[in-house]
Design a protein around this nucleic acid. Structure first.
Length: 209
DNA sequence: ACGGCGAATCCGTTACATCA
DNA sequence: GTGATGTAACGGATTCGCCG
């Protein structure tokens, strides 16, 4: 069995490195069907089908080849198997498992990247919320100031003919800060402002109703 | 165009080895 | 001795290319 053969050649197997990353060929010619061999499941203590860890040299050699190509052509697999004294099936399985590990690692890295991105967004959200709070307080102060002015000048509203203290339509005293004109149609804001607008209305209704 | 077949691959799982 | 972890190997499902 291939496992036994590994023991016999373990010391001499690394002499084949000269053909590293070479010998790529195309698919196996038609008619040369290869039987799929599988090791039988061995029970604990039973030598037949017993799993054996590949040597460090074998693993390193396979690792280097994996660095060159994620998948193996059939001929290259046979060549690798011959060079390492392994069953071609073992080489195929090793590449299969290696691809799975590589894929898992890629997923882990992508997950970590998204986590970092998420954390940055959470921080930014907190900053924006603090800013909203600050602006809301400014608005509240402005409302109080306006109220005082109105109460102090009973009936004298000539400074703002269209102004209505009831504010049935939302009046934004400092929209200029955001680049809006006073009479601009606020319901035609770009999509990016919609979410903010909802919160704005929420805050406005909280303070004005 | 279609279905059958063989080979390769993927995915989930099992079996075993190693280590703390 | 035991649980956790890594990995070789397995088995079923799927995909792909070839052929009649």
């Amino acid at each position: 069995m291939a496992m036994k053969r590994v023991n016999e050649i373990e010391e001499e197997q690394m002499m084949f490195f000269s053909s590293f990353c070479s010998g790529l060929q195309t698919q196996r010619p038609k008619g040369e069907a290869k039987p799929r061999r599988r090791m039988k499941k061995g029970k604990v203590g039973v030598e037949v089908g017993r799993k054996r860890k590949l040597s460090v040299e074998q693993a390193n050699f396979l690792e280097m080849n994996f660095g060159c190509e994620r998948k193996l052509e059939s001929a290259r697999k046979d060549q690798l198997a011959a060079e390492l004294g392994l069953d071609p099936r073992q080489v195929a399985v090793w590449f299969q498992n290696r691809r799975a590990r590589w894929k898992n690692k890629q997923l882990e890295e992508e997950c970590a990247r998204l986590k970092t991105l998420h954390e940055a967004i959470v921080v930014e959200k907190s900053l924006l919320e603090a800013k909203v709070l600050e602006l809301t307080e400014q608005l509240s102060e402005a409302q109080k100031e306006t109220q005082k002015l109105l109460e102090g000048s009973d009936g004298e509203q000539s400074w703002s003919p269209s102004f209505s203290p009831s504010m049935n339509s939302y009046y934004h005293p400092f929209l200029g800060e955001f680049g809006f004109k006073e009479n601009e149609n606020l319901f035609c804001l770009p999509e990016i402002y919609y979410t903010i607008g909802m919160e704005w209305d929420d805050y406005m209704s909280r303070f004005l109703l």
